[in-house]
Simulated scan of single mutants.
Amino acid sequence: MSAEFAAKVFALVDGTDAVGFSGLFAPRGRMRFGNGEPMTGPEEIAAGVAGFFATIKGLRHTVVREWYAGADTIIEETVDYHRLTGDTVTVPAVTMFHVDEAGLIDDFRVYFDLAPLFA
Rank of each mutant, 00 (worst) to 15 (best):
R30I: 11
V49Y: 00
G86W: 02
T90W: 11
H98P: 05
M31G: 12
V79N: 10
G41P: 09
A102T: 10
A47N: 09
R83Q: 15
P27M: 05
R109D: 07
H82L: 15
M1G: 05
G15N: 05
D17R: 02
E77C: 15
L24G: 08
G15Y: 06
G29Q: 01
A50T: 00
A26H: 06
L24N: 10
T73S: 13
Y111E: 10
H98S: 14
R32H: 04
A3G: 14
V9C: 11
G20Q: 09
E4L: 03
F97I: 04
P42N: 13
A119V: 08
L104N: 13
A54P: 00
V13M: 10
P38G: 11
G48S: 02
D72G: 13
Y111C: 07
T95I: 14
D17G: 00
Y81N: 09
F5Q: 10
S22E: 10
F5E: 11
E4V: 03
V63W: 06
I45S: 07
M1F: 02
K8M: 10
R83A: 10
L104P: 06
H61W: 05
H98L: 03
G103P: 08
T95P: 10
G51C: 09
A119R: 11
V79R: 08
I105K: 03
T40R: 01
L114Y: 03
L114G: 09
L104E: 10
F33T: 05
K57W: 00
